[in-house]
Amino acid sequence: MLAFLPSVLRIPLAMLLLLLNILLHVLPLFALALLKVVIPLGFVRRPLSRALVLIAESWIGVNNVLFGVFTRIRWQVEGLEGLHHDRSYLVLSNHQSWVDIPVLQKVFNRRIPFMRFFLKQELIWVPLLGQAWWALDFPFMKRYSRQTLLRHPELQGKDREATRKACEKFRHMPVSVMNFAEGTRFTPAKHDAQSSPYRYLLRPKAGGVAFVLDAMGEALHAIVDVTIVYPEGPCTMMDLIAGRVHDIRVHVRERTIAAGLIGSYDEDAAFRGRVKAWMNGLWRDKDAQAARMQPPTAGVGRGD
Rank of each mutant, 00 (worst) to 15 (best):
A259P: 08
S196K: 00
Y200C: 15
A219G: 02
I11T: 12
K36W: 09
S264W: 11
N109H: 02
L20G: 15
I241H: 00
W59K: 03
R116T: 15
W125H: 09
G281T: 04
H251V: 07
R111M: 05
L149Q: 04
G263F: 01
G42E: 14
V177R: 01
K36N: 09
V252R: 00
P197Q: 02
M293E: 08
P234L: 06
V175P: 06
P174D: 15
I22W: 09
I228H: 01
T187A: 01
V69K: 00
A290M: 06
I101V: 11
A259D: 10
R50G: 11
P231K: 04
W75M: 07
G208P: 13
L48A: 07
A14V: 12
H152N: 14
D159S: 04
D214S: 09
R160F: 10
A298N: 14
Q131R: 15
L240W: 00
P296N: 07
S264D: 13
M1G: 10
G183P: 03
H85Q: 12
D266I: 04
K120H: 03
A166V: 06
A181C: 15
R116Y: 11
G79E: 01
E161F: 07
I112L: 02
E154R: 03
V224Y: 00
I241S: 00
N21V: 13
L282N: 03
V44C: 10
W98T: 13
R185P: 03
M238D: 10
D86I: 08
M238Y: 11
I60C: 02
V91L: 14
G130R: 02
V103S: 02
E182T: 01
F117R: 07
A206V: 06
L52N: 04
P153T: 10
Y265S: 06
A219C: 09
Q121S: 12
L27E: 11
V37F: 04
L35K: 06
W133E: 14
V26C: 10
E218I: 15
W98M: 10
M115Q: 12
E154S: 09
P40L: 05
A290S: 06
D214E: 13
A288Q: 05
V8C: 06
E254N: 05
R74E: 08
L155K: 05
F180A: 08
R255L: 14
F114E: 11
M178Y: 06
R146G: 10
R87M: 09
M173L: 15
I55D: 07
A269S: 10
F180C: 13
R199V: 13
A242W: 05
V62S: 08
